[in-house]
Computed example of a mutant assay.
Amino acid sequence: MPTSDELEQLLRGASLRVTRPRLAVLEAVHDHPHADTDTLIGASRARMGEVSHQAVYDVLRVLTTAGLVRRIQPSGSVARYESRVGDNHHHVVCRSCGAIADVDCAVGEAPCLTADVDHGFTIDEAEVVYWGTCPACSPHVDRDRDTEGLR
């Protein structure tokens, strides 16, 4: 987790004015990866007291536009925000509980930015979402039964 001074430097480096709401929201995004807006509103209020929903939405828009925060929205989910920006990572989403985790690009670079057919587009980002069931939601298996053939 970056310090307050480091967060201030991130804002200044993006030519943004340092304000209490921007610091609170940026810190909340760093503390709560893949959080939805309601979670970030609660975390921001815990840091600085009363802040309006609209102020948090506005700050998230500014931070996303500046490239300090990434907005993701897996199918069927509300928008979520993360502080991991500047790389081409992907996500895995649990179909049961909606948990989201980062997944590095399988090859370690950005090969998926080279589309077979680009239709004239200048491609600057690719989004891959893996879907499955997280360990907490996976059915519990009778381990004795699974290992019977190994005895």
Rank of each mutant, 00 (worst) to 15 (best):
T3M: 01
T3K: 00
T3H: 00
E8N: 07
Q9A: 14
L10R: 14
L11I: 00
L11A: 01
A14S: 04
A14P: 05
A14F: 03
S15W: 04
T19M: 00
T19I: 01
R20V: 12
L23K: 01
V25L: 03
V25I: 03
A28E: 03
A28R: 02
H30E: 07
H32K: 11
A35Q: 03
D36P: 03
I41S: 01
R45M: 09
A46Y: 04
M48I: 08
M48W: 04
E50Q: 08
E50C: 02
E50T: 11
V51R: 02
Q54Y: 05
R61H: 13
V62P: 07
L63T: 01
T65V: 14
V69L: 07
R71W: 12
R71D: 15
I72A: 13
S75C: 12
S75R: 15
G76K: 03
V78Y: 09
V78H: 13
R80C: 06
Y81D: 13
R84E: 15
R84F: 09
V85D: 13
G86V: 13
D87L: 09
H89S: 15
H89Q: 14
V92F: 11
C94V: 01
C94I: 02
C94P: 03
R95I: 09
G98Y: 05
I100D: 05
I100S: 08
D102T: 15
C105H: 11
A106N: 07
A106V: 15
A110P: 01
L113V: 00
L113I: 00
A115K: 11
V117F: 11
D124M: 10
D124Y: 10
A126T: 13
E127L: 13
E127K: 07
V128C: 11
V129H: 12
P135S: 01
A136R: 14
H140E: 15
V141Q: 09
R145V: 10
T147C: 05
T147K: 13
E148L: 15
G149Q: 10
G149S: 13
L150F: 08
